[in-house]
Write a protein that binds this DNA or RNA. Sequence first.
RNA 1: GGCCUCAUAGUAUAAUGGUUAGUACAACGGGUUUUCAUCCCGUCAAUGUGGGUUCAAUUCCCGCUGAGGUCACCA
Length: 480
Amino acid sequence: METVTRFAPSPTGYIHIGNVRSAIYPYLVARQNNGRFILRIEDTDRERYVEGATELIEDTLKWLGLEWDEGPLVGGEHGPYFQSERLEIYHEWVKKLLESGRAYVDPTPAEKVDEYRKQCQEEKKPFLYRNFRPSELDTEYKEGLPIRFKAEPKEYDWEDAVMGPMHAGPETQDDIILIKKDGYPTYNFAHIVDDALMGVTHVMRGVEYLSSTPNYLALYEAFGLNVPVLVSLPHILAPTGNKKLGKRDGAKSVTEYRDDGVLAEAMLNYLACLGWNDGTEQEIYTKDELVERFSLDRVQNSGARYDETKLLWMNGQWIRRIFDEQGARALYDRTIDFWPEVAASASEEYKLKVLSIIYDRLKTLSDLKEMTAYFFADPAIDMEMLKSNKFLKKLSEAELEDLLKKSIAKLSDVSDWNENTLQDALNELLAETGRKPAELFSLIRIAVSFAPFSPALNLTLDTLGRDTSLARLNEVARSI
RNA sequence: GGCCUCAUAGUAUAAUGGUUAGUACAACGGGUUUUCAUCCCGUCAAUGUGGGUUCAAUUCCCGCUGAGGUCACCA
């Protein structure tokens, strides 16, 4: 049987770190089995609907490379893929239940239900609506009234692909609302219908749905449907506390990381491995490797804490990996939006050169902004930075000036300005002045960059070029 | 309160009856002719608790504790 998975978010805002994993895992399972991955928009709550949220969701999935086979934008045989456009289908299905006596129209006003609920809370008893079920059940559809499932509570045993064997008693099943009074279906009902119609074989969602699974099982049974593989995904926890990561904890949207210079490869890699591993000690996985190695039975069954530091480490790994394996050009193509403003008029060739000497110290692509400005514009001279440097503060102004002049003279003599000749000149300078590398190199380095750090000195000078390097050194010599 | 789930270092995890309890991130220290970073080496650091089964328990069973979920006309 063809494997069909889906990601079924509500369009209530952006997708964040805490919930994108329920898109990644279904995607991996579908691809692994040459199946279909469906995107379905669950917009049945008109109160929480957010304009533009669907685009945000699509954008996130596309960036991560989780292309969907059916859904918004791409269409498919099982549409529509917005639940708000499937109202007739739900009514048709609920009618079957109404006719077979497994559903009823509930005339009880919501306020009355709240009263029942409160009563139970005060008595410290779980609230089960079926204990308050009207004695006469109306099975004639009426506009403006909700339709409830008529539970026939029993014991259920089932298997959760992550949690293992599960059991639930009759107390877990209730007369859940199928259709709300506004005519829209509830999640509880709509997803069962849609999954069945769309041929979904694996239902993957957060553990918060585990408690309602018996109700879903009852629904599958009432419709005579096969129960799909049920998969509960543990929560991703906020950096502090033990709660699941949510927007309230400042969970950033996935695409915000993209805008901050995180690579999609790193994000996918990190998230996929949060709560899953293949049993080996491998840390870095390409998307193809994830598709190949992923397995539900190795998904952790306890929550995993989100650790941005590790994500950033992984991003650094990916930046280097792309440069080393795919070339400077491949990495450069990803950096277009991240250069400092002063680099706007610089040539591509020059930026490529800067990138190739700086890339191995990037944690995110946006580090380029802070780390490369002096390659494109003369830095402001900051004598304090020079004099308070831990290696230079021991030297007097006269010594600094002397050292700087000797450096200028030496470097001016370099005829063929390249990284090798520069390194030779620097070595000679070291020998001639008798200074430690820490002193001499710090002086030159700071004088040409006034940056807290920079690439190897010979590479920096080579990239900057002879004219710029010497001009900056002379400028500093005049300022002492 | 009922029902359900979970429990290895600060974090993510490996090992399911027999290992000096492994790896990675972080932290700390060191090395690679400056800095920052990469890379390399090293240090610190864990089986929540009490019973039981067993020659042997991180691993199996039970109690406890702790954490989380759920009990919506939200998903």
